[in-house]
Amino acid sequence: MEKIVSALADSARWRILELLAERPRSVGELAELTGLRQPQTSKHLQTLANAGLVTVFPLGQRRVYAMEPAPLIEIGARLRLLIEAAQANSGERDVVARYQAAIEADAAKADRDRWADGRSFLFERTLQAPRDLVWRHFTDAALLASWWAPPSLTVSECVLEPRPGGRAVLEYRDAEGRYRSEGRVHAADEPKRLVFDLSVLDGAGTISFTGHYHIELKEAEGGTALGLRLHISETTAEALPYIAGIETGWRQVLDNLTQAVNAAMRA
């Protein structure tokens, strides 16, 4: 495949294939039509032959070349699969684009500490599951770790103890490093309400910003209405990429929660 792709990467060879797709042609005819010198044309044809894209027919003193479509059919099939996969997952590219746009929008503001203090977010979902099951997905460490991570990140530690003063810990890892948050639970009213803080820490253990979470679970027709309020404080200039990613990240994470709860209901 590498030989085929390499052969197709040259514009002169591509033009030769276009001409051969019409009908077999001699070296001299191809040189005339492409404007290349005959030795150059012969060299390009040899490269195409080595890649299996053309076949040579010695006809007395003449050498006529014909295109072989089979390798192109194989490449075309693989390209179609690649395109289909990219189209099916285009939403992931959109997520990155939105994240970049959010960073650019806040870049001018993040020139000092406390620049985003007081910023608030509200996320709401209706989950087709009873409140006690949704509550367990927040308070059972194993269940919490199964959904509380955006794509490409893996949860390495996840604790949310449902009692006043309980520990709140969230640690992700990816190929580039570790991302840790620590805090405390302030209120827990099973299975209705959960209030806690999480401070995002930098590599030195210094707070980048603190998120204050207020989660409410209400009975709804066919399931549970989830409301998650988040406001932030103690923001530093270095917190820009984290804060810019809150909106997109939490939407992804709640998608994960929805899938996890649905899977639990089917089990």
Rank of each mutant, 00 (worst) to 15 (best):
F121H: 08
K43T: 15
I16M: 13
P151S: 08
V56S: 06
W14M: 15
L143Q: 04
I215D: 01
E216N: 05
E92I: 10
T47K: 07
Y179P: 02
V159K: 00
V54K: 00
R229K: 09
D94F: 05
E124T: 11
H212D: 08
R178N: 07
G223S: 01
R180Q: 10
R173L: 09
G203K: 01
R193E: 03
D113M: 08
D132V: 14
L254F: 05
T126N: 04
V200R: 06
G211F: 00
E221H: 06
W14S: 15
E68K: 10
E124S: 07
D202M: 06
I4L: 12
R131L: 09
P24N: 09
T139W: 03
E171V: 12
D197C: 11
A77Y: 13
P58H: 06
A102W: 02
G165R: 02
S90R: 06
T224L: 06
V159I: 14
I215T: 03
G118H: 11
A187E: 14
H212F: 13
I215G: 01
G91V: 01
D106H: 05
D94N: 09
L240F: 12
R23I: 11
A12T: 08
L30A: 05
L81M: 15
H212Y: 09
R80H: 12
W148M: 10
C158V: 10
A49L: 08
L19N: 04
Q128M: 14
R136W: 03
P58I: 03
L127M: 07
L228T: 00
R23V: 10
I207M: 06
G183L: 13
A129H: 10
V5R: 08
P191A: 01
L122W: 00
R163K: 09
I73Q: 13
A129L: 13
V169E: 00
G205A: 07
Q38S: 09
E104A: 08
L17I: 15
P162F: 00
Q252I: 01
A267V: 13
S156D: 06
